[in-house]
């Protein structure tokens, strides 16, 4: 095979296989850890999260209660394990809905073009003109807060962004000669979208899904923190922070550990995506 004069090209061509660096691997490990907790958490929780374990409140860390007790005397460790399920579960469901919808619509708009593209883009851009937390507030004010409402609202907030991103990528791929060749061959739109375009935007779309997951966790936690997200007796990590906000002045572990849980998840996802090989992340 020939060598290339431009050393930059050489580097990108020589780059086969997906090597992650250390930071990326650490991020991935934390993500997998929280994923497992969300699935298997209930199996290892020492106390039922709804049970008052002791009449002490806001106690510090002890051998009995690894993360202390909260404002009612619940075992914080058990509640953080339970919170993982809500935070990770709701965010995953929303991000999946948002990205699936956005990517499908985006690819269709890019290939179809014309009036369909124009109207859809205008409309969804208008939704982008509403700040996300506000969107959530208004929706919750309107229909009340329940888990399906939260999932749908969060998905609706982030679908326009996902659409815009996927459409931009698909428009780029759509101008490539191989798509023109397929079109000149007589291929129809579904083939163009599924076989020619989708495989070539998959990497960046997955990276974008990760970033959007972080945003959704942030808004979900924000809503719960305002008391408008996951409702008692259930609680996600944002709700745990809200419950225990009185413990703030005491520096109680009941408020610190849910904070650490949120931060560790979101920072890990961001670090993981930031350190993905450019081959996957490349957005052009």
């Amino acid at each position: 095979m020939k060598t290339l004069s431009n050393p930059l090209l050489l580097i990108s061509h020589a780059h086969h296989g997906y090597a992650f660096n250390k930071v990326g691997r650490a991020g991935l490990a934390v993500i997998i850890f929280w994923g497992l907790i969300a699935i298997f958490g209930p199996l290892i929780e020492p106390y039922p999260p709804g049970q008052i374990a002791s009449y002490d409140i806001f106690t510090p860390v002890s051998a009995e209660h690894w993360m202390g007790l909260d404002y009612l005397g619940h075992d914080v460790f058990s509640r953080v394990l339970m919170g993982a399920r809500y935070t990770v579960g709701i965010a995953l469901a929303s991000v999946f809905l948002a990205c699936t919808g956005g990517v499908i619509l985006g690819m269709i708009a890019a290939v179809a073009g014309g009036l369909f593209d124009m109207i859809l883009s205008r409309l969804l851009d208008a939704f982008n003109g509403i700040p996300s937390l506000l969107f959530g507030l208004v929706a919750v004010a309107a229909v009340g807060s329940s888990i399906p409402v939260l999932v749908l609202t969060l998905a609706a907030i982030y679908l326009p962004g996902s659409y815009r991103f996927a459409r931009a990528l698909a428009v780029n791929v759509n101008t490539m000669d191989f798509v023109t060749v397929a079109r000149a061959r007589g291929e129809k739109t579904p083939y163009l979208i599924l076989r020619e375009i989708f495989p070539n935007i998959l990497g960046p779309v997955l990276a974008d899904l990760g970033l959007r997951f972080v945003f959704i966790v942030l808004v979900l936690s924000g809503l719960s923190f305002l008391g408008l997200g996951v409702q008692p007796p259930n609680a996600d990590w944002g709700a745990l922070v809200r419950e225990n906000v009185e413990g703030l002045s005491l520096g109680a572990p009941a408020i610190i550990f849910p904070c650490i849980a949120i931060a560790s998840l979101t920072i890990s996802v961001n670090l993981f995506i930031d350190n993905l090989p450019t081959k996957i992340r490349d957005r052009s």
Binding site: G222, G238, I262, A263, V269
Partner: peptide
């Protein structure tokens, strides 16, 4: 900065 943008404002 990446840590700061990763966490909720309330945090």
């Amino acid at each position: 900065t990446i840590s700061l943008i990763s966490v909720p404002e309330f945090l």
